[in-house]
Every structure is written in structure tokens, then in C-alpha cells.
Nucleic acid binder design. Structure first.
Lengths: 215, 215
DNA sequence: GAGGCAATACTCCCAAAGGAGTATTTTTAT
DNA sequence: ATAAAAATACTCCTTTGGGAGTATTGCCTC
């Protein structure tokens, strides 16, 4: 277990007041923990720089005014010993990976059980990397199998991919960009190669998965 | 205000234990309300048919095993006087509209303030339609402008649309479903008609927009 | 100024998707 | 029992997309 000489100081960052209430409930039911701050936005968090005595941050990664990945990086830069656990609804492999690479000690789904959350907080404080059990299987496989090929696209390719994702045909795109339909075709072929598929819809899906295109 | 002769009986359906904890906190802080049930899934809810004395349901619309719209319809069919308030992260116009058309008395975002939630519950019990304030502006405009044609799909069509969305070709789908490629083609054509487009990617996008397919 | 990369444009050929229409069987609801 | 809806399967024909190459131009960098 953890050090009993003083309570573990926790803050929560989440734009859902209900979730904050829930966390409050969970933490208040545990002697070793103390909730010392709650923030509903990235701004609220950065405005309050009283992070000195904080041990653990529960961080929602989808905040209205910032994304969890960069917040996590920032926090870790200023407080390398801070334990950060991401809280999210999203189970996208790429996001989890980015989060962990940004220094987070764990990634929990909001569907997780309060008990699990407590256990994970303990484990994270002990230096472990924690994942929601629902994710674990999925993720281990992914990490092992996928070198996670996120292709690098040129600006033109991104632009065309965007238009394709919106449902435009090559001919329409050609007209829109004042280029030959055959050029669009070339870009299209390049995109299929880069995403290693033979089907634009799959390419679009992969692009959305990896954050190249908005969802 | 509401009838003080007895407490208002509330149940919550949400797959996020944290949200349930939050709601508990909120409801327990209010004399007129009583939480008489909590369910983490559509199944858990339907298994427990003790809905006789229930006044209000807080219903998460994205449950692992069912969608809020159909649950809402079901509930309203069995208990026409039941007040149902949708709780969700999604602010898609079409989903809100469908929810309200399915008999819900309100639609609250999970980002709503606990106070707001209480107020909205009151208003809903008084017969009002309540929306999170963030949504209101947006929605009024939408309701006026959009005839919002959401096509009705058969189960087979949904199934095929799903596979198409995953990037499968007609031939692959035919093999998978043990039917003729030509039949898949027919379904595909029907889908294009129903979504009023000539392009499956657009159909998929529209389906995702309107909540027929997950995003 | 030579190499590398992005963007442009083309060829030929084949497979897949889309448009329009018809038709049979199987479910489902009344 | 019967009518409607859904699922199945087909035809013929056109357009679009995909596979595999080649080639030219302009730009940036080293």
C-alpha cells in the first residue's frame, strides 16, 4: 500500500460536474486520499498554480478548452513526479498511446468501477502504468502488433483526403482545386499506398483513427 | 414547485459509475427527491420492471447494450406519465430531436451544473421540456431550419451499412453474409436512395451524423 | 547545381460502384 | 388469410475507382 504518514493529495480536472461529484464521493470514502482541488477546464487548472503539494491528477482528456495530451505534457514538465491518470470515454488506441507517451501513468475509462479507480490510483502511485481492464487486452495486442504506422501526408494529400472524406468524387475535387482529374487520381493512389489499403473509406477511417482527420 | 406530499422517485441509468455517484450526491442533497434505482445498462433496467412508483428517469443515451432513443420509446409506451430526461455528452441536433420525439422531457449534457440538473428535473416534472442551456440557442435554430430527414433503415440495411462503413467491398460483404453480391448491391442502392446521395461515403457520414452509426 | 521531394499529368487495363428497372421468396403484422 | 414490407436475386449499361507504371515541372536544401 501507500505511505500512511500523510494523505495523498489528489486533484481532478473534468468538465463534467457530475463526474467531479462522483470522484468526490469515491475519494471521501477512502482514508488515504484527500481531494485538494477540482477544475472544470484547462484554464481553471493553469490559473491555479498551487500544484506544489499535489501527488496525483485525474485528468479528463476531452476538455472544452484544451486537449489532455498537451496538458499532460505541460504538467509533467513542471512537476515530473506528479502522477497523472487520464480519465476518458474514448478508447482509441492512438490517443491512449499518445497519452502514455506524454507521461501519464494510466488511462481509465469513465465506465470504470469506483473500486477499480481507487485501485488504479494506488498502483499508479506505486509507479505502475494502469489501464482500464476493458482496454488492457485490446491495447496489449495493439502495442505488440502495430508499429502504428501513421503515414506522413503532404499538405495537398491532406487537403484531398479531407475532400474525399466529405464524400466528394475525384472529378468534383479536380474542379474545386482547378487541377486535372488525373492528378487527383494520382494523389488518391498515393493515399491508398500510404494507408496500405485499396479503399478510400478505409483510408479515411484510419486517418480519423490516428487523428489526421477530425472525427 | 413540486408536490411535497411525497418524495419524487428517481432512477438513473448510466454506464458510468462515476456519474451515478455524482447523481447520488446531487439527489441526496435535495429533500424532495429520492433515488430508488440505479442501472448500468439497458439490460439491467429492463430486467427490473419495478417501475410502478417511479416518477423520473435520468437516462444516458449511449449505453453499451442499447440506444437511448429506443429505450425511451419503450419506457414511454409502458409508462406514459413517466418523465424521462436524457443525459448525454453528445450535442448532435438529430439525436436531441429524436430523443424529444421519442417522448423525453429533456436533454441535458453531462457538462451541466448539478444545480441546473436539479432545476431541470423540477421543470420537467412540471411538464416543461428542458434543454441544457448550452444547447438551447443552437437547437432552436436547428429546429426551425432543418426538416432533418433521417431515413428509416431495416436491420439488414443497417448491418450492411455498418460493414460498408468499415471499408468492406460489396463482394466481401456478400461472402460474409452468405448472400449474393447482387443482393448486397441492391441494399447498397437502397441505402444511397434513402440517404439521397450517390456515394456510400456520404451515406456513411450522414448515418454517423444522425446517430445511426457510431462515430 | 545536383539530388530529393511535392505536385502536376498522363497511359492502359480491369474491377468495383452506381443508376434503373424487374421479380421472387420470406417475414411480419393485421 | 392476406396484404405489406423486407430480403433476396437478377439484367443491362455507365461511371468511377484502383493498380502499375512513366514523366515533367518547380521548389528547397545542402
Amino acid at each position: 500500500m501507500w505511505d500512511n504518514s500523510r494523505k495523498v493529495r489528489v486533484i481532478i480536472v473534468d468538465d463534467h460536474p457530475l463526474v467531479i461529484e462522483g470522484i468526490k464521493n469515491v475519494i471521501q470514502g477512502n482514508d488515504g486520499l484527500e481531494l485538494v482541488g477540482q477544475f472544470g477546464s484547462a484554464k481553471a487548472l493553469s490559473d491555479s498554480l498551487e500544484m506544489g503539494g499535489v501527488d496525483l491528477v485525474l485528468l479528463d482528456i476531452t476538455l472544452p478548452d484544451g486537449n489532455g495530451i498537451s496538458i499532460c505534457k505541460e504538467l509533467k514538465k513542471s512537476y515530473p513526479d506528479l502522477v497523472i491518470i487520464a480519465l476518458s470515454n474514448l478508447s482509441e488506441r492512438s490517443i491512449i498511446k499518445q497519452m502514455l507517451q506524454s507521461g501519464a501513468s494510466g488511462y481509465l475509462l469513465k465506465t470504470a468501477d469506483p473500486c477499480d479507480i481507487l485501485n488504479c490510483m494506488q498502483d499508479a502511485l506505486d509507479g505502475k502504468i494502469v489501464l482500464s481492464s476493458e482496454l488492457k487486452v485490446n491495447f496489449d495486442m495493439v502495442v505488440l502488433n502495430e508499429p502504428e504506422e501513421i503515414p506522413e501526408l503532404t499538405i495537398r494529400e491532406k487537403q484531398i483526403l479531407q475532400l474525399l472524406a466529405a464524400g466528394r468524387t475525384s472529378a468534383e475535387i479536380a474542379t474545386e482545386l482547378f487541377i486535372s482529374p488525373l492528378t487527383v487520381k494520382t494523389h488518391r493512389a498515393t493515399l491508398l499506398h500510404k494507408f496500405e489499403t485499396g479503399n478510400i473509406l478505409t483510408a479515411v477511417n484510419k486517418a480519423r483513427e490516428s487523428g489526421i482527420l477530425p472525427k
